[in-house]
Design a protein around this nucleic acid. Structure first.
Lengths: 193, 193
DNA sequence: GTCTATAGGTGGATAGAC
DNA sequence: GTCTATCCACCTATAGAC
């Protein structure tokens, strides 16, 4: 912990609060005033760190991609089997549901037409990255006999990704985690031998 | 066309415009001013028909359920096979994507925590109705040999519903209809023999 | 049923002191 | 880097004339 760390963490706390609001309510249902109250600073201080809400939103999606990438690395490290990795991936989604929100990028995708153009590329990249990671897991699983499915692994990965995103949103609306658990079970069962 | 029809259709035009905005942008990204401009009336006129935005949103979801129910009836009438009905169901989603939006209730589900409590029940009912309808189609298909899948039909229906909602949202963000078409093909293939 | 006019509040954003 | 104070645009909603 270097002494040069100082107090740049207000910026982090702003991002954390904004991300929570965005995942819970949506990008057009929280304000600088909401963040200010949650963090314990004034609105002007937020503008010091993020000149405009567009800037804040861009940073949110970029940071989320990095966060998710780090979590995928943890799943790979902790889970040796393809089945373990697939269920581990589902558990990441489940955690956001329990926290009261949905995937930041699922929310962003819904709201895309009310958001700045600059967000489209990083958002598109996020879904491409997720599909690619899942594709790798599914392909490994099929090669070693854990999974059985037809067609290209990437196509199946896109199916899995859509199911998880949709299931997350429906369970979010119903406030019903067990519904998401059933979905996850069935999704895994649809590829597991 | 009875002469007593008069001009209650401003109300319909308001609902149509609001629904379009809601499906394209989200529930917190359009205003009475947007609707007023689209319909060609003043904001005060909208308040005459819908006292508050909450009232408008409630009517939107209730009307959408009826609209969707009518479209399901058309699919049942036009398609005799389970496969035809399943693909017809997917085509309904595809149509909203081409129109530039997502399912009204998918959007509502995302935004649920920023919407009035009164919307939760009709929204929940919508998803239950959709799952029930799909469950009937899947069950019929399995009984007559068109489909092959394991487990309860309702569970499989919930999987299909989540996949379509999620796929719709992802394709909406990417503005890529072919991506949704691939998803739909794979989804049908996952149950069709 | 539609309009003009306006109230009362909140949105993002800025200037300038400390 | 954080604050107070303020701006202006836009929001939902209401009052009252036509």
């Amino acid at each position: 912990m270097p002494i040069t760390e100082s107090r740049t963490d207000t910026r982090e706390r702003i991002l954390n609060a904004a991300q929570m609001f965005a995942q819970m309510r949506g990008f057009n249902a929280f304000s600088y005033a909401d963040i200010a109250e949650a963090v314990g600073v004034r609105k002007a201080s937020i503008h010091h760190h993020f000149a405009s809400k567009d800037d804040l939103e861009l940073e949110l999606v970029q940071r989320y991609r990095l966060q998710f990438g780090a979590q995928l690395a943890c799943v790979e490290r902790d889970q040796a089997t393809a089945l373990g990795r697939l269920t581990g991936y589902g558990a990441l989604y489940r955690a956001t549901l329990i926290a009261g929100g949905i995937c930041l990028c699922g929310m962003m995708a819904s709201d895309i037409r009310a958001l700045p153009e600059a967000l489209r590329k990083p958002l598109h990249d996020f879904f491409a990255e997720q599909a690619a990671w899942l594709s790798g897991v599914l392909d490994d699983g099929r090669k070693n006999g854990e999974f059985v499915f037809r067609g290209p692994a990437l196509r199946r990965a896109q199916l899995v990704l859509a199911t998880l995103q949709g299931g997350l949103i429906i369970a979010h609306a119903s406030q019903d985690v067990s519904q998401f658990d059933s979905l996850l079970d069935d999704l895994v069962a649809s590829v597991a031998q």
